[in-house]
């Protein structure tokens, strides 16, 4: 980082600022959204793009040296691990009986009896699980 006012530096800092902005929106989503499933949506999406932009800023700033190359690897891994982790958490939450937020309108996962483990075949009343009372 020699000249902080060069065009490359400005572009890199702009990317990083946008990245931090999306990360911040992800955090706002975590606070405002009602249940684990909606929060995971905000968490995965905003934090994925936010961190992408931060890493791109790093690559732009340092070039493809040891640090830039690692940032590129992180980018590749993040794009695979972030949605996979969201799926694992959502699936585990549903299987251990974490309910959808009140106001949720549909739960096909429980209807098909996938969301429960144990003696009861499926959660929810009658064949219409999830309607009104998730």
């Amino acid at each position: 980082m020699t000249d902080p006012s060069g065009p490359r530096e400005i572009a890199a800092f702009a990317l990083m600022a946008a990245g931090v902005g999306f990360d911040l929106l992800g955090c706002v989503g975590l606070v405002r959204l009602p249940d684990v499933y909606n929060r995971l949506q905000a968490g995965t999406k905003c934090v994925t793009l936010g961190t992408f932009l931060l890493l791109l800023g790093v690559i732009l700033l340092s070039g493809l040296d040891a640090m830039g190359w690692k940032a590129l690897l992180c980018l590749a891994f993040l794009s695979v691990t972030s949605p996979t982790a969201a799926h694992a958490i959502a699936r585990a939450a549903h299987r251990s009986g974490v309910p959808l937020a009140p106001g949720s309108v549909l739960d096909r996962y429980a209807e098909d009896g996938e969301g429960r483990e144990g003696p009861e075949p499926a959660g929810g009343p009658s064949g219409d699980a999830g309607e009104g009372r998730p």
Partner: peptide, 26 residues
């Protein structure tokens, strides 16, 4: 898609009415 998806979530999260209608489809 990732960029569009972020703008979409950002819009919902910032909106004071919090326009969500969540559920699980298949």
């Amino acid at each position: 898609f990732i960029v569009r998806s972020n703008l979409d979530v950002a819009r919902r999260v910032i909106d004071p009415r919090l326009p969500i209608r969540p559920g699980i489809a298949k």
